[in-house]
Design a binder for these strands. Sequence first.
DNA 1: GCTGGTTTTAACCATATGGTTGAATGTAGA
DNA 2: TCTACATTCAACCATATGGTTAAAACCAGC
Lengths: 117, 117
Amino acid sequence: MVKTSAARLDTVFHALSDTTRRSILRDVARKEKTVGEVAKPYQISLAAVSKHLKVLESAELIARERRGSFQIVRLCAENLLPAEEWLAWYEAFWNRQLGVLHTYPEEGDKDEQHDHE
Amino acid sequence: MVKTSAARLDTVFHALSDTTRRSILRDVARKEKTVGEVAKPYQISLAAVSKHLKVLESAELIARERRGSFQIVRLCAENLLPAEEWLAWYEAFWNRQLGVLHTYPEEGDKDEQHDHE
DNA sequence: GCTGGTTTTAACCATATGGTTGAATGTAGA
DNA sequence: TCTACATTCAACCATATGGTTAAAACCAGC
């Protein structure tokens, strides 16, 4: 099932819209962990953590590798890049609003290569 | 109701997790629009657009200003910044994974050609 | 006030979400 | 094979989502 880039952004932003999942991403960024180790800091059940990992995995923000009876969870940071790029488009706007720079974004340029975003 | 910064990130990322809402944000970034003008490009009902605007508004990504019987919708780009900063924390990770090795010019992993986009 | 145009609310529907508990599956080792 | 541990699946629950249509609310102008 090939996703459009819009659909992939939907999935990534949705994966990031939960505090626990963002926290898990930070955790595994620092160091690869087993599922059990990932779950340890949280008060919720292992099954709930497993669901969160599934959400992160379908957004391709983590990957798993079997190692014996454990599964090692590791970050796939490169799939955060499209989200970061989507946000970076607004840099000129917040710079202007925060009074940092005076780069006036021109109307109607610079973005139509985004497929109907 | 004061939100923690984690809760605010939840709200912002959730607001961004829908293609229509991201598209609306782009639209009003180019030019302030009335609710009706915002709705025009989309096939969904005005009520549905109104709901999307409410989601964007509670994330403080847009603001409305009454002008006669119209409401002008404008971007509040500065509230995207925390999300951008959260993502930027991973820059070092995706740089490394994409082979932009600024720190260690010589490394063990060989393949990764990874033409992104 | 009435009318016409703009936008929101209400009620509803189908589906998804984040959580639970308990059973099932996978894997390593004795 | 039996056991112990790691992880997922199944079923369920409450609430939220994104959409609809129809009614209500808001606002200018006559």
